Computed example of a mutant assay.
Amino acid sequence: MLQLQYITEEQLAGFDQYQYSAVDTNPLSVYIMQHLWNRVVKIVPLWIAPNLLTFSGFLLLLINYFILCFYDWDYTASGSQLIPNWVWWFAALATFSAYALDSIDGKHARRTQSSSPLGELFDHGLDSWATSLFTISFFSICASPRGFPGLSEHMMFVFLSIVLLNFMLSHWEKYNTGVLFLPWGYDLSQVALVAGYLLTATVGVELWQKPLMFGYYITTISMTLVIACSIFLSLPQTMYNIYMAYQRKTLKKDSLYEALLPLVSPTILFFLLTLWVTSSPCDILIKQPRLFLFMVGVTFSSVACRVIVCQMSNTRSESVHYLLFPLALVVFAAVTGLLGRLEEVALKVFTALTTVAHVHYGVCVGRQLSQHLNIYIFSMKKRAQE
């Protein structure tokens, strides 16, 4: 693979000075889950690298996603009972395992005295992609197959967008404050996902196709709660934390422009995606819901990883991510009718190229930081000094 130097010398110097700082006030995490993870991490052999735990969890999510792709490519299979019951049991196991591995990797790193900026970047970078995989996999349960109530394709897009923007909000907050305030929604959402898969495996998908209370379905209630929590909890808490950093004179950025810079690319990204969804001549989201939502997730992850690198290295965020330019061309050609019947082909090509570019970026950044910090990504051994 062609090795490109994506990380600048200034950023490498910033990584050398990086110190991890996080605050977790979620009662579910503090009083329940952390006690569980403290016990689980003791089972892990000391010779296993923390990044191997992180990557194993991500691979489980990918396997789960591809299994659901096979049985439910267009999000219509659940209403027809076409998905075998073992798929839901595996989804619950894979989701819980990925959640556990993501929760103990940092503990294992501290336990083995192998904590490094590379480990945190590796963790958060994969999280930026895993967030969409968690969400679009679960849609196979609560989608609206033919003749059944549930999330429509457009509601899936809205739901996914809100989840991803909440992820970005946390890292934008850290970009400005230097502290990662762990969102309350993470542990709650993971427990809810596992419970949802287990209920589906035990009771059946019919659970999601019947009113839960007062004539409202679980999907409607869940969507309302996510939107409400984002507007009335996550956003106000983020603004409060940034304001308090300003009051204490600990803000990392000294101007409003610099503070808002990481939000430019995500804003443009979701503007373009929304324009494509609402103005597509062939209703691209209806025709290719799974492919389109996967593209949303991988493109967002590519944007988010650049922000995370700048945040950790305490360097200036880029103004506009380069992938937004070809995306803008594709969206323009699609909504103006220039693509015609080739719109689906354009989506497939853009998704493939974006995925390859993002994976290449991740591999090159991992290698570059690995060499700079004199460590291996998946091994506890130190690199030989040159």
Rank of each mutant, 00 (worst) to 15 (best):
L62R: 05
R341G: 15
S379Y: 05
I284A: 04
E206G: 12
C305H: 13
L272E: 04
F148L: 14
F138Q: 08
L225I: 10
S114H: 13
F66V: 13
A333N: 00
F90H: 00
T8K: 06
Y217D: 04
S115I: 05
Q81E: 13
I377T: 10
F96Q: 13
F15W: 09
Q311G: 04
P236M: 07
S114L: 11
F139L: 05
G185M: 10
L275R: 08
S80T: 12
V158G: 06
A259M: 10
K348C: 12
I83D: 08
F292E: 04
S152K: 03
A49C: 04
I7Y: 02
Q237Y: 05
Y240V: 14
W172A: 04
I231S: 02
L28V: 14
D24N: 14
Y197V: 03
T267C: 05
A328T: 01
L82S: 08
D102L: 09
Q385A: 15
V303Y: 00
S144K: 13
F270D: 00
Q288I: 06
R367C: 12
L118T: 06
V226H: 07
V359I: 14
L193G: 02
I43D: 02
F214W: 15
I67R: 03
S170G: 11
D123I: 06
V356P: 07
E318Y: 06
P84E: 10
